[in-house]
């Protein structure tokens, strides 16, 4: 088991966002987290690399074991080296394309083979061919879809095991979305992906496993095939058939 979540509860102040979540993630899979707005799926994703701690007054209980180490007993910076994240809206730094990808490795103290890491990461994110002649250009000269793939390359450059994706295509057009979905399937060979999505079709296309959240609780977790064809819980069925959400 790559990631094992036990009795995870997260509260913002008095507001409990997640209640006793138990979930195991297998390596080299894509897991989709689905559920209506406010169900805690983003909170869940952000608790996996301890980004929830950036919000004041957050309390977390339970444990998340990454390769047998509880990440809440690790240095948060180290956790984030191993568990990368791509956000809802592309958020490249106002720097060159090259500097964006090199940012993480530089923090880590790499400097001799930076060029190599940048090229390799951009290739993995399927962006290299489009930007190889303009690495010095500002990242904001790229289109939204390219920016998002740049953010994926930026995350890959620190060589994480797990990639968290928080609705990574919700701000993109269908073509860019398709590219990123294809990318997830190829990245799965080397990485483990956990993606939050509002889009049921997307979950169906990319995910091996699906977790359905409602009101801060994990209602159902299983293979994507099972969740979409024979859901166990009535609420899951209502949600995926579009009766609410």
């Amino acid at each position: 088991m790559l990631l094992s979540i036990k009795d995870l509860s997260v509260s913002y102040g008095k507001n409990q966002a997640l209640k006793n979540i138990n979930l195991d993630i297998e390596p080299n899979t894509v897991t989709a987290i689905i559920g209506p707005s406010g169900c805690g799926k983003s909170t869940f994703l952000r608790s996996l690399n301890r980004l929830t701690e950036l919000t004041p007054n957050t309390t977390t209980r339970g444990s998340i074991n990454y390769k047998e180490h509880n990440i809440y007993e690790m240095d948060p910076m180290e956790v984030r080296y191993h568990i990368g994240m791509v956000f809802q809206k592309p958020n490249p730094f106002p720097k060159s394309i090259y500097e964006n990808v090199a940012f993480g490795p530089k923090l880590n103290g790499y400097d001799n083979n930076l060029q190599e890491i940048v090229e390799e990461s951009l290739k993995k994110a399927d962006l290299w061919l489009e930007v190889k002649d303009r690495l010095k250009d500002n990242a904001y000269t790229l289109s939204g879809g390219q920016q998002q793939r740049l953010c994926i390359a930026r995350s890959l450059a620190v060589k994480p095991d797990i990639l968290l994706m928080d609705e990574p295509t919700s701000a993109l057009d269908p073509l860019s979305t398709a590219k990123i979905e294809d990318l997830m399937t190829t990245l799965k060979e080397h990485y483990t992906i956990i993606i939050v999505t509002h889009n049921m079709q997307q979950a169906g296309r990319v995910a091996d496993n699906v977790a359905f959240f409602l009101n801060g609780e994990l209602i159902e977790y299983g293979s994507s095939e099972k969740i979409f064809t024979k859901p166990f819980d009535k609420r899951t069925e209502d949600y995926i058939t579009g009766r609410f959400g």
Partner: peptide, 8 residues
Amino acid sequence: EGAYALGA
């Protein structure tokens, strides 16, 4: 957040 997520 993007920078924190890279371990900054």
